[in-house]
Design a binder for these strands. Structure first.
Ligand SMILES: NC(=O)c1ccc[n+]([C@@H]2O[C@H](COP(=O)([O-])OP(=O)(O)OC[C@H]3O[C@@H](n4cnc5c(N)ncnc54)[C@H](O)[C@@H]3O)[C@@H](O)[C@H]2O)c1
Ligand SMILES: NC(=O)c1ccc[n+]([C@@H]2O[C@H](COP(=O)([O-])OP(=O)(O)OC[C@H]3O[C@@H](n4cnc5c(N)ncnc54)[C@H](O)[C@@H]3O)[C@@H](O)[C@H]2O)c1
Lengths: 206, 206
DNA sequence: AAAATATTGTTATTTTTTTAACAATAAGTT
DNA sequence: AACTTATTGTTAAAAAAATAACAATATTTT
């Protein structure tokens, strides 16, 4: 299948979560406008996304939730699951690890790295924290393909380079330091302060 | 001034941070392509954004960093600063409070709310945590206009309603539960899992 | 002083994303 | 059985965002 638009991929992740909730409630079929209401978007958007992934519902009955969830899984997940490394075991890093630990998902944090001796050689929610020096070895050994950076911003570029060098193919950067990665590595950045300043701006405008 | 595009606002926040770094290093002028390099975007984008806020540089000399930072401040900040409430003093809530505490910024968290007795009536990084029941009173008294939701997802809609009812004009939602707010309230949502699943998808595609 | 260069500011074009329009049709109603 | 309604799937249009093109011009070089 063609590579899906960024925004569609984001929504698929959200559809799946909501659909799983509905499944858990015993619901078996769902209409596009029902999905839309759950996510506070429009039903056209839902139908368009579903069209893009090549699924069809039945007229007057809607979509088979189970089938749709499975298909989204086929698109978003790999069969074996994907392994993740977290670099920087501070507030955000730990929060993330705990959070993912609770979910049974195809995405698993399997290693953490830090430089602070207090954090190293301990486990948090079953994730072992190694010294940064071990990064390349562990990533290779475990075949980890995704890295999350939650270190202080100053060191983020250096960590990013190390991750890329170790063979990582996707990076999620939570530091406010913009990174650059070579072609072939997918980079997603998020900055909480930017979000907050954006809200503040639009509040001010009102 | 016209309301700026969402994306431009996001970048202004990032420009300011980078520009402040440059100021601290003693740099006084900067070219569009230099800003672009710092943020790993294109210089056209930078010039276009700067055009939109109505600033002009000088040919062959670039932009006066101090002036640009001040102008961005005029656009993003209010003179008195803006007050923020955090609801849910868990991992993310606490991380945010600590983080903003370190920055001297026009954005200040002035109150936190929770329902867990262990969190209530204590201060974290100078932010006092009240019982949720006091939310309306404190928000009115302090004239808080922005709320950050970091509670468990199930209660997010209820918290959102309470915030809106208390007069909040902007909400930043970190729970994976989509919210809806009335016209006139600005809502920004962010979901870490969605980001991560997006990275995973594009890694898989490669 | 003329030519070359670097850089801005702006308009035009392209791409991406969202929204609207609507034809097709299964199911329900008269 | 004919009619109405609800809903999908898809194409078309609109809106938003990014990128490209380029004219204007201050500075530097020849
Ligand atoms: N906490 C927030 O609410 C918040 C908000 C916005 C942005 N951020 C950003 O997110 C990032 C993480 O924030 P946090 O609050 O978790 O920070 P933190 O200080 O709690 O954690 C940072 C961790 O990184 C480790 N570290 C330092 N240097 C390292 C290195 N070279 N290699 C590996 N690990 C290293 C530290 O030992 C520490 O454990 C920071 O960049 C921060 O600017 C945080
Ligand atoms: N931690 C992560 O990495 C992560 C990742 C993705 C999403 N999230 C989401 O972010 C949110 C916060 O995560 P967290 O790890 O900080 O959770 P947490 O459990 O550490 O904190 C939640 C806090 O909310 C409080 N709370 C519960 N009910 C409340 C109510 N009715 N009113 C006010 N406060 C209430 C709890 O007492 C607790 O202090 C959750 O919705 C979670 O799903 C977290």
């Amino acid at each position: 299948m063609e590579t899906l638009p960024d925004k569609t991929v984001e929504r698929l992740s959200q559809y799946r979560r909501s659909l799983n909730n509905q499944l858990a409630k015993g619901k078996e079929h769902i209409f596009s406008h029902e999905i839309a209401n759950l996510l506070h978007i429009t039903s056209v958007q839902v139908r368009r996304d579903i069209m893009l992934i090549g699924y069809s519902g039945t007229l007057r009955k809607g979509y088979d939730i189970k089938e749709l969830v499975d298909l989204i899984g086929k698109i978003l997940d790999t069969d074996e699951g994907q392994k993740i490394a977290v670099v920087g075991m501070g507030n955000i890093g730990k929060a993330f690890i705990h959070y993912l630990y609770e979910k049974r998902s195809k995405l698993k944090v399997v290693a953490a790295f830090d430089v602070n001796p207090e954090k190293i050689d301990k486990s948090y929610a079953d994730v072992y924290c190694y010294h940064l020096d071990k990064l390349k070895d562990i990533i290779a050994k475990e075949n980890i393909k995704i890295g999350i950076i939650t270190t202080p911003p100053q060191v983020a570029p250096e960590i990013s380079d190390k991750l890329v060098d170790a063979g990582i193919k996707g990076i999620l950067n939570y530091t406010p330091k913009p990174l650059s990665v070579p072609e072939g590595v997918y980079l997603e950045e998020y900055d909480m302060i930017t979000s907050l300043e954006k809200v503040a701006y639009f509040v001010k405008k009102k």
